Computed example of a mutant assay.
Amino acid sequence: MDASTVGRRIARLEHDIGATLFAKTPQGYRLTAEGGRLVAPAEAAEKAAKAANEATRQEAGISGVLRIGAPDGCANYLLPQVAHKLCEAHPGLEVQIVALPRVVNLSKREADMAIAVSPPDTGRLTVQRLTDYHLHLAAHRDYLQRHPDIRDLPDLRRHRMVGYIPDMIFDRELDYLSETGVQTAQITSNSVSVQMQAIRAAAGLGIVHDFAIPFAPDLQVILPDRIALKRSFWLLRHADDRGSRRMNLLAEALTHNLRAETARLEGLVRAGMTRDT
Rank of each mutant, 00 (worst) to 15 (best):
T56G: 09
R275Q: 11
T126P: 10
L144I: 11
A89N: 07
H84G: 15
A23W: 05
A42Q: 13
N76K: 09
L177P: 01
T56S: 11
E46H: 13
S178G: 14
L125V: 14
G272V: 00
A253L: 10
A271R: 12
R160C: 06
K108Y: 02
R226P: 05
G243A: 08
N257P: 00
R109S: 14
L223F: 14
Q128K: 15
R109G: 14
K24R: 15
S189D: 08
A52G: 07
T122Q: 14
Q220I: 05
L66A: 02
A263T: 06
L79N: 02
L153Y: 03
G181W: 00
L156W: 12
C74F: 05
I150L: 05
S63K: 08
M168W: 00
V65F: 03
A253V: 05
V39A: 02
R160E: 09
P26M: 01
M168G: 08
D16R: 11
R102P: 13
P91D: 00
A114L: 01
A138K: 09
G36L: 05
E34P: 02
G7N: 12
T126E: 12
I213S: 01
V6L: 10
D142Q: 13
E59C: 03
D155T: 02
A99D: 05
A212E: 05
D149V: 04
H147V: 03
V39Q: 04
A33F: 13
A271C: 06
D121L: 10
V103A: 08
A70N: 02
G18K: 04
T180I: 00
S118P: 02
A45S: 12
S244I: 06
T32H: 03
K85W: 06
M161G: 04
R200H: 13
H209Q: 12
A271K: 12
E94L: 10
H256Q: 13
I17Q: 11
L125Q: 07
A83C: 10
G206L: 06
S189H: 01
Q197T: 11
P119F: 07
R264G: 13
L174T: 11
Y133D: 04
V98N: 10
A185V: 04
F211L: 05
A48K: 14
E94W: 09
I68Y: 01
L144K: 11
E46N: 13
R57A: 14
E261W: 02
R237M: 13
S244E: 03
A3I: 08
P91S: 00
E173V: 07
V117F: 01
N257F: 06
D241Q: 04
Y143Q: 08
Q128S: 15
H134R: 15
E59D: 15
W234A: 05
T277H: 13
Q195I: 00
L229A: 02
L21R: 01
D152N: 14
S107T: 11
L144T: 09
